[in-house]
Design a protein around this nucleic acid. Sequence first.
DNA 1: TATTCCAGTAGTGTATACTCTTTTGCGATG
DNA 2: CATCGCAAAAGAGTATACACTACTGGAATA
Lengths: 242, 242
Amino acid sequence: MTDPNSSTERKSRAGNLADGVYQALRRAIIEQALAPGTKLPEDSVGESFGVSRTVVRSVLARLTVEGLVSQRPNKRAEVASPSLAEARGVFQVRRGLERTVIESLAGQLTPEQAGELRAHIAAEEQAHGRDGPESIRLSGDFHTLLASMTANELLIRYVQEVASRCSLILALYGRPHSSECSVNEHQAIIDALLRGDEATAVQLMDEHLMAVATRGLLDLKPARERDLKELLADYRGRLTAS
Amino acid sequence: MTDPNSSTERKSRAGNLADGVYQALRRAIIEQALAPGTKLPEDSVGESFGVSRTVVRSVLARLTVEGLVSQRPNKRAEVASPSLAEARGVFQVRRGLERTVIESLAGQLTPEQAGELRAHIAAEEQAHGRDGPESIRLSGDFHTLLASMTANELLIRYVQEVASRCSLILALYGRPHSSECSVNEHQAIIDALLRGDEATAVQLMDEHLMAVATRGLLDLKPARERDLKELLADYRGRLTAS
DNA sequence: TATTCCAGTAGTGTATACTCTTTTGCGATG
DNA sequence: CATCGCAAAAGAGTATACACTACTGGAATA
């Protein structure tokens, strides 16, 4: 073992290290700690988390499938930087997917689920001021929370995936805090949903996503260069974090 | 190397063995050479293709993501056997996805693309009689062909994925040759598409998918037991096949 | 000085070795 | 005869070793 146990990482009986590293790396990318284009050599990432290349390799493969990392044969993996064309494609798919979510949820929500949604919105409002990674994540989580209520495994996975990709896209092309302004829109959507007004809900969601897409379109990012290990330092340790 | 070169496998300069094995295994599953529930131990599969567990591992991971294989920690991987609930979920997602495909294609097809589609339909009619794996595959390929014309990478991937899953599902729950009867439906869809009649095309596609879904609902499959390596024998060799 | 070539280095692709978990088969025991 | 337990075998999780590819920088050359 390269590094028996460092700081706070202690996952009862390890089963798969991969999952932990996956979560951490994924968050690091989505929360924009790792800018698009950042190189991710297998060894370096492995050292950062204290695992071998084998593990990192599988994680990178997974993230590649999800479009957060791009990998070409014999080349170092890097944080993906989707083109504008790809970005448009992702948003188009997302609209279709979330339409499906709405359709299967309209008028079907239990009171508990309604409560969960309201609580989430409250949290979003709370984090409204701060522009930290928190706010970015919460905004995306609204959509995955909604999706998770469909109990449709595949739909959930797909929505998660497009939501992740969108975070990355907004990081690349979006204005600094473009995500914040959508809290009311979220609110309006669940209102329609709870009324059972499917048509309106579908339309609101569609408009919301269009708005999010068009809100992000400028800003090329200066993207300060920092050391990879330093950037990842915050993400080891909490391997099972939220 | 365990097995330097066996029979016809010669991929110029190998780059990634994984891709070849992936294609082969995927086809084996989709064409129902490997029945749902078939165990896929890493070593055995590796021996079948003359590659190491490392490679097989990555392939299985990939197929797991795509829902063709299911893997639980410390358990042997096996060909997935989705539940009816999951099956329904897949079809629901598929409908949403293909709706998006139609929407972005209506009235946008070039003459060449139209020709390609017609050619495909012709091939489907040709294979109509034989119930071989050929027919199963062609039927699914219609949808992926259509998707590929959107030039939306993500949409293409998702459609491919759901189409694969659906093949598996029909293998599990469908009647023997349920896929054949849909050639006319395919025809009607591209007709509407070429006319630029988006609304009709969307509706036809939706009905088509509903029909495919409901056509498959009975038959639990006897599933003859055969030796894994024997089953896979046909699939090695042609690592870059169509 | 600019350019080409080559060696050294960094990094991926693949195989294999080792450890730990799960399964399996068989003998002891009720 | 059933079943419980345990040891051997099978298999997954992980690390590492080695081979091959791609990048880098500098020396030799024009």
